[in-house]
Design a protein around this nucleic acid. Structure first.
Lengths: 237, 237
DNA sequence: AAACCAGTGTAAAGATTCTGTAAAGATATT
DNA sequence: AATATCTTTACAGAATCTTTACACTGGTTT
């Protein structure tokens, strides 16, 4: 991955210089502007991963730059200020800043905050693609597509079957009672002589066994069912 | 959109009570735990949008909870602490927290920080989708002219049909529920017995099938529709 | 050990829900 | 009004879910 680019908008040239050096050392590519107008122009460049924005500046101050960028700006912004003023801080956040750091600050804290923001973005992007997915004991469950794979092979489950398997896999090695299944999946209390859960379990088992040697759903007589986590058959699902 | 859920993990029950009230008033759904162990258990629930995590707690302290969650935790975390200690602050961020707020704090600042984190997530998710023009599986969608091409041939879709196809293509390989389609495209909640989406889907299918051999919209019974990304017919649209 | 019994597995039948689509009606646009 | 578009209605068919029925299991009582 290429270096992340950070734009510093601050009229304090001495500070800017120091920060540039420090952040470069930490592996970022740094650009700097010393007033709001030119900063705003650079900001539209869009190739920056993050903007460090000073509040007190000539021409356009930090808040005005924030407003100009509009609330839905794509580049995350970390505000810097000389004032420790609370209202300033909150105002910045409300106007769309992602974080706020009062001068003077330790370089290490600045770095930690920058990384926190960038890390969150990375995680969100990953999750958006990799969608919530879990794999236990060679059974993989894709929520986005509602698909289940056993040993890399697609297992066709119905909606209810999928939800029950999901519930069981979310409680690996824990007993899940029929009552819980009924309430969480079917939205109703388990009534006497209701055998539908038994049927669903039976169907899930049958479908999974078409691809796995061992049964992964264990019955606990009188208590419920468990999804077994044990590494029974050894491949990479 | 449903309410966002926030989990508070803090042993100070009085504070927790106040925060719950305040955040509920601001439109969040709030749950609370009073020690690290139970908090960690709830955190795995995964239905929370954000966690407020106190550092000083019995059993497991906040840092230990952070470590237990691992760096790549999907739920954003805002740390709270009584100490104004810088090193604590930085340590939390380095361990994977998204932000840090020192007690005592103003409710308004807390709210602003919570919103800043959630807003960033929303923006990232949106931007990941918003491409001006896209082509998937031989279907090309031109936003500028609102035209759709399938295998280079113009497909005449109505406005609603275009928007539905757009939504589905922005979520390739993800299930889009009828509810989402209704809310995002028609700006209304899906009411019972409303079959109009079925009709639109049916029409889109019919129009696309005039130019493609294979159906690209897959029905997931009881869940919604998916635009298939698979390279079914092999040319360059 | 035999009888008993509640809980379970599962095939098959029955009931229910969801979807596809034609056609008619309603609404909006020109 | 004429046209295009969207929604509702209606029915058929498909997929799914539930119930029924009977066999089996494991534990308990006699």
């Amino acid at each position: 991955m290429s270096k992340k680019k950070i734009l510093i908008i601050d009229d304090d040239k001495e500070l800017t210089e120091l920060l540039s050096e420090y952040l470069s050392y930490e592996g970022f590519e740094v650009a700097a502007c010393h007033d709001g107008v030119s900063g705003l122009a650079r900001a539209y460049d869009m190739s920056f991963s993050l903007i460090l924005l000073d509040v007190m500046m000539p021409k356009l101050n930090g808040f005005e730059v924030l407003k100009a960028l509009g609330g839905q700006h794509k580049i995350p912004i970390l505000m810097l200020t000389a004032k420790g003023d609370h209202d300033d801080r909150v105002l910045g956040l409300e106007l769309g800043a992602d974080d706020y750091l009062a001068k003077p600050f330790q370089h290490r804290e600045l770095l930690a905050r920058i990384n926190a923001i960038l890390r969150r973005i990375t995680i969100v992007k990953q999750n958006d693609n990799n969608n919530v997915s879990q794999k236990i004991n060679n059974v993989r469950l894709e929520h986005a597509t509602r698909e289940v794979f056993c040993h890399q092979q697609l297992v066709e489950l119905t909606g209810t079957e999928f939800q029950i398997l999901d519930l069981l896999m979310n409680n690996v090695s824990k007993i899940v009672s029929k009552n819980e299944i009924s309430e969480q999946v079917m939205n109703r209390k388990l009534s006497a002589f209701d055998r539908s859960i038994d049927m669903h379990i039976s169907n899930i088992r049958r479908k999974l066994l078409a691809f796995c040697p061992a049964d992964k759903l264990k019955t606990i007589r009188g208590a419920g069912y468990i999804f077994l986590s044990g590494e029974i058959d050894g491949d990479k699902g």
